[in-house]
Design a binder for these strands. Structure first.
Length: 164
DNA sequence: TCCGTATTGAACT
DNA sequence: AGTTCAATACGGA
């Protein structure tokens, strides 16, 4: 069974991001380039609950894009395996402007050897930016990869004041 | 069960 | 210093 998400666009100076909400929280976020947007504007009823989340999510997103640390995050409804959720949870513990290597993340979840699996989980991350998969660099401080495009990763890091 | 992965560290040019 | 290679954990087909 496929979960249906409530899709809400977020206009920023960098383009229109798409957020998707489930009954439990923010479930997905897409970069502007994905042409997932511009759909037959399904103006369904947006529960007040979700409007509240969206307000927080939008503020958090714009803060990050502006190079400032968000004060607050909306609840996240991460759909994935236990391992993935574990990784994503670890990612959220990385503070703004800080970077970690895949190896360190692996160590943080008590699987020091699962470095590549961590990479896989990052790639499967449904919520970039808010779940800071872009703050993960390879051990030799190289850029690695990024789902939404490497330009985004570099740009986001630069805005956080990270140099490499 | 086999294959690919957003890695890593060591061995080899 | 750049490159190749095997190992490793996990998810998808």
């Amino acid at each position: 069974m496929k979960r249906s998400f409530l899709e809400i666009p977020v206009a920023t100076r960098d383009g229109v991001f798409i957020t998707r909400y489930s009954e439990k929280g923010l479930a997905e976020l897409n970069f502007p380039n994905s042409r997932t947007s511009a759909r037959g504007a399904k103006k369904e009823v947006v529960p007040a609950k979700i409007r509240g989340w969206h307000r927080v999510a939008e503020a958090a997103l714009k803060n990050i894009l502006a190079g400032r640390a968000p004060k607050k995050f909306p609840p996240l409804d991460l759909a994935g395996t236990d391992f993935q959720k574990c990784v994503w949870n670890a990612l959220q513990k990385i503070s703004f402007g800080e970077t970690k290597s895949y190896g360190e993340v692996a160590a943080a979840i008590r699987n020091p050897k699962a470095v590549r699996a961590v990479g896989g989980a990052c790639g499967a991350n449904p919520i970039p930016v808010l779940v800071p998969c872009h703050r993960i660099l390879a051990a030799n401080k190289k850029i690695g990869g990024f789902s939404g495009g490497l330009e985004w990763k570099r740009d986001l890091l630069a805005r956080e004041g990270v140099k490499f």
